[in-house]
Design a protein around this nucleic acid. Structure first.
Length: 449
RNA sequence: UCCCAAGUAGCUCAGCUGGUUAGAGCAUCUGACUGUUAAUCAGAGGGUCGGGGGUUCAAGUCCCUCCUUGGGAGCCA
């Protein structure tokens, strides 16, 4: 008890203090009473423990204070740690002293059920609930797994700028803002172009930060602000890229399984499908995927004059949610689809030397309806071909001058990919909506809290 | 942007083919209880039924319109 912050213990470490006197600090998760007994479920962020306050043990004054506690009031509790079969978790505190730090006013989130809109409006408080607590802990584990994986494999973390002068891929809608006398700047939707420059400087790098998409998405797998990790490697071809993607995802899932057992239990996540997530994953070319769709009669559905028109899935069309879900139904592990048609993919992707109609791109789809968790490619490293595609897509050549420089001075084959952190957290936790996988989600109609 | 759905107490909802004073559970307040797990029991307070307009003797309920929110599609991680 040598310093202020070591003068109390955390719930997660209580099993080390059986039959000893400890002080805990936290919040009242729930309180029930029965005459001369009060049961406080105390949460401190690391866990929840039942604290039993018996009038005859603490005296009239403290017992009266205990009865006045409300949900989420903050308290300091001292008592003996005892194992008890009646207590949830098997451990409880026999309270000898209780100090009220703050009495909470009527707390809006009750132990009863609430609607989605209400909870998300109270996100700042919702984070205190045990389910959200568990998801945030898994998120932290996923973040750590990502950093550990790259740091341990010779990668250097090089941050990309968030304010950028142009659209990276030229397609997505971007958030625009004024930038002094230089006109408009845009919030980055990807750090990739800068990661490429970094990779040609440091070899293997990763950039890890928020990405912004101004698309008016209204689905349970989209956020306008989300976290993306983007490794970029000099001298890696598409196969190396896919191998690395598999290694990373396997590492994240297995690390989380190992370190978040309790959290996954709280979330009632069936971990058997996750245990299967070990290399090798499945792979399929775009062309093979189209053949599968055709032979399994999964059509392309298009709206023509307001009517849904079905047709045999044509080579060259991009997959929608229907196609991806149908394909994934057969797989119990992630699947990588590679070599997509050039026309539906970004300008910086390298064309397949064996077939210029496709590019050396790859997407990883997760099982259990996880959807697309990774998108990547080998990059076009030929100056003329890249310039060609920039001009074809009507991108401002001037803004890409520095990017073309990378193909002018010691150009090398290189590859990379982006992994969406929240999509992975959603998959691993089984969260119903992606907004539960980030502390403060930014969505089309919601920027508060 | 398109398609669908929902707005009734602090929260979650019920409210039939329009009909007297709009209901329940939880939360809050008062009281009882030494083992509660969303405690239980008794009692109390709490509502411009999303806004506006219309039909009608009569609208939470039917019609129009606007607003808000949710889900799906597209875009993508």
């Amino acid at each position: 008890m040598e310093s202020r912050y070591k003068s109390f213990r955390y719930v997660e470490s209580l099993s080390e203090f059986i039959d000893q006197q400890v002080t805990l600090r936290g919040w009242v998760y729930n309180i029930t009473g029965k005459g001369k007994l009060q049961f406080i479920m105390l949460r401190d962020g690391t866990g929840i423990v039942q604290c039993v306050v018996f009038k005859n043990n603490v005296g009239e004054e403290i017992f009266q204070q205990t009865k006045e506690l409300t949900q989420e009031s903050s308290v300091s509790i001292t008592g003996k740690v005892v194992s008890s079969e009646k207590a949830p978790g098997g451990i409880e505190i026999d309270v000898t002293n209780l100090e009220v730090i703050h009495i909470a006013k009527e707390y809006p989130i009750t132990p009863k059920e609430h609607g989605d809109a209400f909870l998300i409006e109270h996100r700042h408080l919702w984070l205190r609930s045990s389910r959200q607590n568990a998801i945030m802990r898994v998120r932290a584990a996923v973040m750590k797994a990502i950093r550990d994986f790259f740091d341990g494999n010779g990668f250097k973390l090089l941050d990309s700028p968030i304010l950028t002068p142009n659209a990276c891929e030229g397609t997505s809608t971007l958030f625009e803002t004024k930038y002094f006398d230089l006109g408009s700047a845009y919030l980055s939707q990807s750090g990739q172009l800068y990661a490429e420059a970094s990779a040609l400087a440091l070899g293997k790098v990763y950039t890890f930060g928020p990405a912004f998409r101004a698309e008016k998405s209204k689905t349970r797998k989209h956020l306008t602000e989300f976290w993306m990790v983007e490794p970029e490697m000099a001298f890696f071809d598409l196969n190396d890229d896919m191998d690395l993607a598999e290694d990373l995802v396997e590492y994240i899932v297995q690390f989380t399984l190992k370190t978040c057992k309790k959290e996954l239990e709280v979330l009632e996540r069936d971990i058997r499908p996750l245990e299967k997530v070990k290399r090798p994953f499945y792979r399929m070319s775009y062309t093979e995927a189209v053949e599968w769709l055709v032979s399994n009669k999964i059509p392309l559905v298009q709206k023509i004059d307001g009517k849904d028109v079905e047709s045999e899935f044509p080579w060259g069309e991009d997959f929608g949610a229907v196609q991806e879900e149908a394909i994934m139904e057969q797989f119990d592990k992630p699947l990588i689809i590679h070599r997509y048609p050039t026309d539906i993919k970004a300008f910086y992707m390298k064309r397949d030397p064996d077939n210029p109609k496709v590019v050396l791109a790859m997407d990883m789809l997760g099982p259990e309806k996880a959807g697309e968790i990774i998108g990547g490619s080998q990059r076009e490293d030929n100056f003329d071909l890249l310039l060609d595609r920039i001009l074809n897509e009507n991108l401002p050549e001037e803004e890409f001058k520095w990017y073309l420089d990378l193909r002018k001075y010691g150009s090398v084959p290189h590859s990379g990919f982006g992994l969406g952190v929240e999509r992975v957290v959603k998959w691993i936790t089984g969260a119903a909506h992606i907004r539960e996988t980030i502390p403060f989600p930014r969505m089309i109609y919601r920027i508060t809290p």
